[in-house]
Amino acid sequence: MAAEQAKVDPMYQFTIEPLAGSSGWELAGYNIAFTNSALWMLITTVVLFLFVLGGMKRELVPGRWQMMVESFTGFIDNMLEANIGKAGRKYVPYVFSLFMFILFANLLGLLPLGIFGLHPFTFTSHFTVTGVLAIISFSIVLLVGFWKHGLHFFSLFVPHGTPLPMVPVIAPIEFISFMVRPFSLGLRLFVAMMAGHVLLEVLSSFVIDGTNAGATFGLMVGLPSFILMIGICALELLVAGIQAYVFALLTSLYINDAENLH
């Protein structure tokens, strides 16, 4: 029984394994093994490339595929224009890449490839990945802010209409909330993706263990868990989209701060 339980380890799905003997690859002393995580990044990039390529037919009357790609670019374009204004257009390539990369990674990680004996790997459930993405976004905010406004960018920490005596109190709070942004940005995505995948795995262990324990347990525990799993799967698809959207939205809001101060 103990051996059977060990089979379903909810955390095993997050394990990173070097593929095809690449564990020894190094670059300037750092290990750059081509892992299953890197493989799924590659798959995400290729799938995203093919997806956008399908929208490059540049027809005046778009087909379904082109329409789909254009609605994604239009969606990002509208979001940036709504949040930043006309100046937001130049960030479309970055925010589009960010949104689509995260969205495709989340969705590809949910593919039921286990049926074919493959293991989809959701690299957005690793904070090393989400952290780097968050740091890139945050760096863009800092670069744009200091490039456009110079040291005046620090006035971001003093909101409009703050009474002068309150400034010494407000400014540190604003500064801390500003510095927390990359962490909240990266952790939110990581936690959401990981929690969903763990939940699915735990529920599947209920299904498997319950069914193995006999017909009664199978009906009482396994079946409800299975039904719940189907619902959670739908929810996870939603979360995959929402988290990508939230990441892109917050990035655009932060860029807005840098672009327009406030």
């Binding site: 750059i32 479309v92 390539p93 890449s97």
Partner: peptide, 24 residues
Amino acid sequence: SSQVFWLLVFFGITFFVIGKGMVP
């Protein structure tokens, strides 16, 4: 290090090829 490296590689490809090249 491998996570960061490969993410930078693939996100970089995504950004420069797809974001900069195809989206416009």
